[in-house]
């Protein structure tokens, strides 16, 4: 699925997106607030859903090669996070839904 579809399903707001972010393809979803777990993940085309709204979430995504971070639970993002997303070419989306509900919505969309 593309990021545009994900943004639609989760009624997400864009905090930062590099040019052409709408067409970025997502192959897998990983949801966690524990960056230690994120760093153990080994997936391609990964979307990170987290309610840990810190620069380290963006940094950790960049480290494992994830191009999209979705901040769940209505959390606000800092200017530092947006700057870092820009620097690392990461799309940063915000949703009002909690992590669990975000995952369920994506699952339903995929017909799982």
């Amino acid at each position: 699925m593309t990021l545009m579809q994900i943004a639609d399903v989760l009624e997400a707001e864009l905090a930062y997106g590099p040019k052409g972010w709408q067409k970025v393809s997502v192959e897998s979803v990983f949801s966690s607030d524990l960056m230690s777990d994120v760093l153990m993940s080994d997936r391609e085309g990964m979307l990170l859903i987290t309610s840990l709204s810190t620069e380290q979430s963006i940094r950790s995504a960049g480290i494992v090669g994830s191009e999209v971070v979705l901040i769940a639970n209505h959390k606000t993002v800092t200017e530092g996070m947006i700057q870092l997303a820009k620097e690392l070419d990461i799309t940063l989306l915000l949703t009002k839904f909690p992590k669990y509900e975000s995952c369920i919505r994506l699952g339903r969309f995929l017909g799982l």
Binding site: D33, L34, S36, V38, L39, T50, S57
Partner: peptide
């Protein structure tokens, strides 16, 4: 901060 799960060095 999202760390301290005891996975650092093993990872």
């Amino acid at each position: 901060q999202g760390f301290g799960a005891g996975m650092g060095l093993p990872n």
